[in-house]
Design a protein around this nucleic acid. Structure first.
Lengths: 110, 110
DNA sequence: TCGTGGTATTGACAACTTTCGATATAAGAG
DNA sequence: CTCTTATATCGAAAGTTGTCAATACCACGA
């Protein structure tokens, strides 16, 4: 007699998560993680040329990755003369871990 | 006279981050985030048919997303009769936020 | 054993990503 | 203004990903 499906369906619209997904997508690449880690460890802002030297990528590609991080709001940049310096955006870590928490934490254990 | 480049190069091999990047890649999709959030909010394990009903995807696609989460070690599954039940892997949240922290935290503020 | 229904895998295709060379823009030096 | 150097953008090639239809697999019930 056709047992009904196991449990009642939950709602949970996917587009609630589009924003978080975009942010995670921005960090879902080894080179971009390297860039972020470098920025996090740096005591000063880091100039683009350091990345083009430090990464096995050439300059347009580095620029592309920096743009993705910029558009995700995870880094900021400032032009100083000919050079452009990048640093970790304020609250970058917080925004990421908040996104994680709001996804995974709500399992309230009373 | 050709000023040297702005600052000394840092090391920081990219493949240190390949593993973290893979994990973040697994969560870098709205539908997979929806799955994770559902699991996190569920008091019990959730059966696949719930996802196929709840998501605007059809069954093979859901299965594909579940596989990616499984292979990233973020969910586990158990077959019970005809149904397969998924739940959040132990320490899923911890592994993700640890990866975040080891990336972004080392900026020690003395 | 056969049929049925839930889940996984396969194969194909469109869309998106990563990467690079070529080129454009921006800014200081002369 | 012109040259040079640092960074960004463009356009194309190669690889990866999300999706689905078709099909295979698995477990139960008759």
């Amino acid at each position: 007699m056709s047992m009904q499906c196991c449990c009642p369906p939950k709602g949970l619209a996917a587009d609630v998560f589009t924003e978080s997904a975009a942010m995670f997508k921005a960090i879902a690449d080894p080179h971009r993680l390297t860039i972020l880690a470098t920025l996090a460890r740096a005591s000063e802002e880091v100039c683009v040329c350091d990345f083009t030297e430090g990464l096995p990528l050439n300059q347009p590609t580095v620029s592309h990755h920096l743009r993705i991080l910029r558009e995700a709001g995870l880094v900021t940049c400032e032009r100083r003369g000919t050079w452009v310096y990048y640093e970790l955006a304020d609250g970058a870590h917080e925004r990421l871990s908040d996104a994680l928490a709001s996804l995974l934490k709500p399992k309230v254990k009373t």
